[in-house]
Structure formats: C-alpha cells, structure tokens
Design a protein around this nucleic acid. Structure first.
Ligand SMILES: [Mn+2]
Ligand SMILES: [Mn+2]
Ligand SMILES: [Zn+2]
Ligand SMILES: [Zn+2]
Lengths: 140, 140
DNA sequence: TCCGCCGGTTAGACAGAGTCCAATACTGGC
DNA sequence: GCCAGTATTGGACTCTGTCTAACCGGCGGA
C-alpha cells in the first residue's frame, strides 16, 4: 500500500496508509465519516482533519473519485475506472455500472468554447413495492 | 399562479405564491438561498423556514425537481419535463439538455426486485483553456 | 550530537446548508 | 365572526466540511 502511494507521489505516512487500506482493500463507496470510523475502529489513529486532507489529496492524485449523489454528504469511490451508478433512493446504497457497455446517443453539441470533462449517469432505483420516496434512510 | 397551486392541491398562501412566481416566471435553476433572496429583495416577505417547507412541498407535488450536483447545496429545477444537464465545473452554471433526443443504451438489468425511478445524466464541462479544476466559483 | 526546516497532523473553532420547535398568525368553512 | 386546523416564523440546533495555529517528527547540514 505504501508503494502504491509512493507511485502516485504521495509520501506514505501512517495515517495515509491506514486510510488507503480502508478504501482500496474494501473497494466500496465511503463517506468521510465512514472512513474516519473504520480507521479508528480499534483505537484512535487519525483525526477528522487528516481524513478530509487525505481524501482531497487522493482525489487530486486521481486515486479516488468524488460522487455527488447524496445531498447531505460526498461519497468517495475507490473505483476510478469509467463507470456509472445505480442509486437506491430508499436505502441510499450505490452499485457500480461498468461504462464500457453503456452508450449515450443524441447529446446536443456542447456550448461553444466548452470541453467535455466527463459524463455521469445515475439510475435512481426503488424496491418494487416501496411507497414512492422522500429521502434515503441514513445508515448508522 | 394561485390557480396553478390550487390545481396541485396546494393552498395558495401569499408566501407560496411569491416563491412560485420566482420559480416559474424565471424558469431558472435556483438554490434555496437564491429564492429566499429573490423573494425578499424588495422587503422581507418570507422566512427561511418557509422557503424550505415550500420547496419540499413543491417537490412532493412534483411542481419542481431537486438536482444533486453541487456538493454544498441542493438546486431546484422548475423544469419538470424529462431532461438532463450540462454542468460547468468552473462557473457552476447548469444548462438543460432536453431528454427526447437522448438515448442511453447498454445499461445492465436492474438489481432484482428494483424498479427504475429515473435516469439522470450530467455532462461535466469546462471552458476550453481553463486549467483543469477543483471547485466551482460560488456566485455572490 | 544538536539544530532548524518543513511537510504532516491535530484539536477545536468556525462556516453554511438544512432541520426542528414552540409560539404565533392566518384561513376558510360554518 | 368563530374556531379548528394549517401555515409561518425566529432562533436554536445539527451536521458536513473548512480553517487555523500549535505541534510533531524525520532528515540533512554544521
Ligand atoms: Mn446540505
Ligand atoms: Mn455538505
Ligand atoms: Zn462507483
Ligand atoms: Zn434543468
């Protein structure tokens, strides 16, 4: 894990390695708070400020992606391959959709002088019988 | 405007009508704070609590849509026809993409027991020469 | 060995969006 | 006009995320 950080021009401090382990060994979608909790589950190792500092650094270095899907918090995605998401509006859970099969057609030309930076697709889903929705249940 | 609210089972109070006027006459994307500011531009007419109450009500009644694109605030969209968005990651501005031309192919089947609730596409864009990005400049 | 530098970490204060509450004001059907 | 339900409101509060200023620690040079 330290080598992986070094390979991306990041000095592998103890805190950064611990955060990277949570992200890359588990390969799930995480909020900052979940990472803080996971890293410090056994005993305090990392502060809130460092979690935010480190996540920002990892995003800059393109080790992870930010997902803006939940109105109340940013979700971090250790999967940086091009992909989209199913978003269960009831439970709040996210599922990856590999992008290589997906094709979007008929998009209009970009506003002049603009360059495309990426396309995000979010498929909102809901359990078959669930009575419509308002907001997802916040886990823990 | 009062009739439009009544037609959607909403009693047209003074405050709700003022908020509806901002949303539907201007037909732009708004944050709660922008609506609060617009309605109260001349003199105080509506409180923050009422703006949030009313926006939530309008969303329930499907007069407007919530857009989750900016990590720091929800954007409200008075255009409820199916459409997607260009998102200028530098200025933060949103531009509608009518959905009728757009076709998404190759999406995998939904997780079992799930029903699709909608598909949102966000095309992130950037001015041609702009030096990549981090966060959009917050207007006002 | 000692010292200074400098990047990294940290507690806690702070900012901003959004929610909640209990008191007050309004509405509309009678 | 009365009154019961509905809506509005200031302000306290919560929560995510940012900032700051102190601190820590490894390394390199004298
Ligand atoms: Mn928020
Ligand atoms: Mn936030
Ligand atoms: Zn993902
Ligand atoms: Zn729109």
């Amino acid at each position: 894990m330290a080598d992986r950080l070094r390979a991306n021009d990041i000095s592998p401090t103890h805190q950064r390695v611990e955060i990277a382990r949570v992200l890359f060994e588990r390969q799930e979608h995480f909020t900052a708070d979940q990472i803080l909790g996971s890293v410090n589950a056994r005993h305090a190792e990392v502060s809130k400020a460092t979690v935010y500092n480190t996540l920002k650094l990892f995003v800059e270095k393109k080790l992870i992606r930010e997902l803006i899907i939940d109105p109340t918090r940013v979700v971090y995605d250790p999967n940086t391959t091009p992909h989209h998401h199913f978003y269960d509006t009831v439970s709040g859970s996210l599922t990856d959709i590999p992008a290589d099969q997906v094709r979007v057609m008929g998009l209009p030309p970009l506003p002049p002088g603009m360059i495309a930076d990426g396309v995000d697709i979010i498929v909102r889903t809901r359990p078959l019988n669930e009575p419509a929705m308002s907001g997802p249940t916040q886990p823990e």
